[in-house]
Simulated assay, not measured.
Amino acid sequence: MKVAIVAQWGNDRTARLAGDLRERLVSADVTVWLDAATADELGVPGRPIEAFDAADLVVSIGGDGTFLFAAHGARTTPILGVNLGEVGFLNAVNPEDAVEAVMEEVRNFREAGELPTRSMPRLAASGEDWQLPSAVNEVVVQGARRGHGGGASVEVRVDGSRYATGHADGVLIATPTGSTAYNLSEDGPLIHPGVSGFVVTEMAGAQGMPPLVVDRDATVSVTVEGTENAVVVVDGRIRERVEPPADVTVEIAEDPVRMAGPASDFFEALKKLE
């Protein structure tokens, strides 16, 4: 079995836990990969995150940002999230339980040849001649800059029917997982993870259409007009600049996030937003 570990950078606690977990796995005859930064802290060889999709399990140690980073490398490889003492939406395992939780997944894999998982949807964003890696949280289509004198002229369609048009800082399309992140800061609604859909939220729209929750099978099209360039951003990390007029299509991706280990309590995790 191959287990890949990604730890929050620059954090002594996560590095120590990654080291302890690595030692336990190696003693159990498990092949262990570490991301380059964590490996450097521990003085062992590392691997690029892009190679982690070849592992059987990816362990993320840190906050939701670390999980998102790990998920982009893991693709459809199951991920187990370990939090830093605060229950998160993506990291359900406490640090003191981390080693045993991972070893339980090792036992499951050796007994069944696969891991029990649950799926979370991702979003795929594409244009005429480009496609970005799938988003775990959100896809944002926005002007090159926000605020007065910035933004972009946009038209939003859902399955071909026009929903909103006008000038806005941007348009945010979020998964249920992402509804608790950037979407919430833009006054979008929380979506329970059991809901089969995603949310479209205008960002400071001049005409102010309310957020809209659409079915998971819907296709959202954002047409960017005007003269200034815009940018498409995936999970706050990956960017594609587009030159108007441009059409951006967002829909459910074919590669969901596969979660291993115990599930977090959505309502308990909401407390971190208070």
Rank of each mutant, 00 (worst) to 15 (best):
K2Q: 08
V6Q: 12
A7F: 03
G10A: 07
D12N: 11
A15E: 03
R16F: 00
L17S: 06
L17T: 01
L17A: 12
D20E: 15
R24Q: 09
V26W: 03
V26N: 02
S27K: 13
V32M: 14
A36V: 12
A39P: 01
D40N: 10
D40W: 04
L42K: 13
V44F: 10
P48G: 14
E50S: 12
E50I: 02
D53S: 10
A55D: 00
G63L: 04
L68E: 04
F69H: 14
T76W: 05
I79Q: 02
L80A: 12
G81I: 07
L84A: 09
L84H: 01
V87C: 07
L90I: 07
N94K: 15
E96H: 10
E96P: 00
V99Y: 05
E100N: 12
V106Y: 04
R110P: 05
A112I: 00
R118Q: 14
S119I: 00
S119R: 10
M120K: 13
P121C: 01
L123A: 11
A124F: 02
S126C: 06
G127M: 06
P133H: 02
N137R: 08
E138Q: 04
Q142F: 02
G150N: 03
R157S: 14
D159L: 10
P176R: 08
P176K: 09
T177F: 15
Y182S: 07
D187F: 08
P189C: 05
G194Y: 09
V195A: 15
G197F: 08
F198N: 04
F198W: 14
V199S: 15
V200K: 03
E202Q: 03
G208A: 14
M209R: 14
P211Y: 03
V214H: 11
R216K: 06
V220Y: 05
T223K: 13
V224H: 01
T227L: 12
A230L: 10
V231S: 02
V233Q: 06
V234E: 06
D235P: 04
G236H: 09
R239W: 02
R241M: 10
P244D: 04
P245K: 07
A246K: 01
A246I: 05
V250M: 15
E251G: 07
I252G: 04
R258S: 05
G261K: 01
G261S: 07
D265V: 01
L270K: 15
L270I: 06
K272P: 02
E274Y: 07
